[in-house]
Design a protein around this nucleic acid. Sequence first.
DNA 1: CGATACTTTGACCGCCCTCAAGCATCGTGG
DNA 2: CCACGATGCTTGAGGGCGGTCAAAGTATCG
Lengths: 260, 260
Amino acid sequence: MEAIGEKSALGSLSRPEARAEAHRCGCKPPNGLAAPDCLECAIKELSVCGALDPDEFEALERIGRSLCAPAKTTLFEQGREASFVYNLTSGALRLAKLLPDGRRQVVGFALPGDFLGLALAPTHMFTADAVSPVKFCQFPRASFSHLLMSKPHLLRRLMEIASQELTLAQEQMVVLGQRSAEEKVAAFLIGMRERYARLNGQCVYVPLPMTRLDIADYLGLTVETVSRTIARLAREKVFVVVPEGVRLLDVAKLKRIAEA
Amino acid sequence: MEAIGEKSALGSLSRPEARAEAHRCGCKPPNGLAAPDCLECAIKELSVCGALDPDEFEALERIGRSLCAPAKTTLFEQGREASFVYNLTSGALRLAKLLPDGRRQVVGFALPGDFLGLALAPTHMFTADAVSPVKFCQFPRASFSHLLMSKPHLLRRLMEIASQELTLAQEQMVVLGQRSAEEKVAAFLIGMRERYARLNGQCVYVPLPMTRLDIADYLGLTVETVSRTIARLAREKVFVVVPEGVRLLDVAKLKRIAEA
DNA sequence: CGATACTTTGACCGCCCTCAAGCATCGTGG
DNA sequence: CCACGATGCTTGAGGGCGGTCAAAGTATCG
């Protein structure tokens, strides 16, 4: 998985295949290379940007760029220098840590509004791959860090997001450490539903842009167990499996399993 | 487990047994009820306070109190209102989340220098119990939060700690999700060793103030498995079990197992 | 259409959990 | 001082959940 454009205008984007991002992700201008239009941004209230004044938006727009990329693009890789911080505006990312022997732990999925770069570390702590076509804003880490110190509002907001993220990580520890396969899958689906509900409103359709393997590596299970568990829950009429997701039939039952 | 002194000068400390904290924890004045002496604090460089100027120390001292408590004291409980934030200066705490059916996930152990209250949430996300006699500083959450906004240095430092904590939580997800029992125990011991090394300097003796059950609930295992795994590693001469901890014999081997 | 990646299903097995019992340590009270 | 109960730790025997291995089915894309 070589990194193309490490020194290109795109930053450290890379893809296993190659080229032709422009028409594949449908961005105009090609690759969506443009200053972000923060005031028009659909998810700004749900994101870091939510805490900003109009003049602060301008400061952000000046240092940032709006980009897009097709599925399977690697935004950045674990261990590499963290040159940028990111804000996802559309699509979904898989955030994963790789072990030397090939095992993988997915530490989260980023959805629109999510901020990447909370770690403030000089290198990335995990790899971020697009599991669907994505749009996102990209800010040079140094500029962003500098902006932080002059805008206590922004820093405070980032701190709130970091602590929210920490709380979520601790919830996930409970899932990984204490729950059965069925409980894990149920908790995952309820979690995804709630996250999409904040974006699109409550809905019985839960999108699952990631693969079964991604889910398995997120829950500390194998693909087979995830597949079997989903199949069983579908057989028990808790939901039906539809392309790219599930349609919930018995939300109460799913919640009961998840919160067991 | 009733909370004594919810409205007392001590804040929300509670213990299953009762009274007599003064001589049992050996604090003078009784209960260690005193303004903290931040400038004299042994672990200030390793803690939040590390980022402060002398005048900022004074501000902290004004709003805070130095306290101590014997083992098994509950500093605060999951779900209760978070009236205070804390800074541990001595001893160790178990931070745990309880499931409705009695299962428990230990989300971490606090050691001297660790800050509690990063979540910035109105209620506590986990229960904090002393696993050994502890000394700590306590700050009213509102005053502390207010101080934060007037001291960008302090906020920035807290943000760094939060992101460090988040990174650690993601590491722990890898341990919980991907590693075998033996790898979990090894990773735990290496982790504890490193944390104590920052406090006391590198040393082959690793203190384990918590019980086997605490370790098990931290690693997503059972007591029996933890006990058996420790016994096996001891049999293989990786370490010897000593009161309140282990003495490492083969650090390299332990690291090899942990990082597998 | 053929290649590739993803998903599902089945059969088997092993790691870790469960259940049970014995042992060590410690604080308490007679 | 020792008896005791409580708490924590260890060890053994057996079973089950989820992992492993294998193969077939399905969708996607060049």
